[in-house]
Write a protein that binds this DNA or RNA. Sequence first.
RNA 1: GGGGAGAUACUCAAGCGGCCAACGAGGACAGACUGUAAAUCUGUUGGUUUCACCUUCGCAGGUUCGAAUCCUGCUCUCCCCA
Length: 376
Amino acid sequence: MHFKLDGTDPQSGARAGTITTDHGVIETPIFMPVGTVGTVKGVHQRELREDINPDIILGNTYHLYLRPQTPVLEKAGGLHKFMNWDRNILTDSGGYQVYSLSANRKIKEEGVKFKSHIDGSYHVFTPENVMEIQRIIGADIIMAFDECTPYPCEYNYAKRSMKMTHRWLDRCIKHLEKTPLKYDYGQTFFPIVQGSTYKDLRKQSAEYIASVGAEGNAIGGLSVGEPADEMYEMTAVVTEVLPKDKPRYLMGVGTPVNILENIALGIDMFDCVMPTRNGRNGMLFTSEGIINIKNKKWEADLSVIDPQGITWVDTEYNKAYLRHLFTVNEMLGRQIATIHNLGFYLWLVREARKHILVGDFASWKNNMVKKLDQRL
RNA sequence: GGGGAGAUACUCAAGCGGCCAACGAGGACAGACUGUAAAUCUGUUGGUUUCACCUUCGCAGGUUCGAAUCCUGCUCUCCCCA
């Protein structure tokens, strides 16, 4: 993997860059659609490629390990071939499931014992086997196995957890060196900064993560319920420390406003289920503000979904029709909403990139933030 | 014509003397959702001046301290036999 800085915004910490991998070029800032189990829910690969056109998408180690299971992925020659996606893929390590499946797992120094949410069977994830599984899945960017702490998180717990995540990181790196590539392209490993919402822990963690000299770095444990201002504060502390010549990935963020604010703080990569999940649940992010398409007010509104027309669905369908599809619970409604939202998110980060390169990002951002937060 | 069953809130449907403004489901309305256990989850759904009162369980009477629940009549619906 190679990262090149193409430009920085004079008024903020925003950067535009280019990541090059064996599966192509990723222009940053980038939003990566989430495709947990080998599909960006509700979107055909063809639509993803042609209509939304992201350079990279996500998969999830825990979910893919449970189903279809690694032997199938290995037989297929990796996730790219299995799902027919020839651009970049990043896999999360399962660290987020340590948080989200908290009722079904037990954390120890050695690793995490999970109770499968599918059949109740027990599985153990360690830094070592997570690296092996990610080798088999074969994503271009693979993540360290970490503990994503909840919010709020008591200081002592956050500190202990952060230190364990650091020790796990060492084990990941050590084991990865012994685990050869499975396919004929490279894989890049990203470590993850933790430290909850404590500035000193975040700084300490960022310093540790920076010290391992990875080709890219991630920030985890945010967007887990903390107020946005706290998230920004933590991002600011961390980006101050992380190397400027490496991409920075803020995991799990966020709303369109969150993304713009974090771009301003020097983040290059984002992922979030919001455009897909909220889209399936009727929430549309548009150039004019946020719409709950299920609301009665759209019942007879024949105006197009988004006059900006970022993706073709925006102008081919009207609001009343889309609301109707949700009302009668037709899957097409969820598909349209998902394509629209992903198109919008990708448009947003591409627009941000343009403004960074032109040099007027800060003022453009402040303008956008006001519009994007509006509820229509 | 004879016999039987039934009418409950937007719909379906419980309730069979007080704990009933009335279970439950659907629908409707609204909210939530941030490295996806999520096509999921939550709330509201007779009215109002809402820790209370008023009007509701086909219609009209009656019994009772008290009725959606018991009695009488009426109206309507469905089923069976002619």
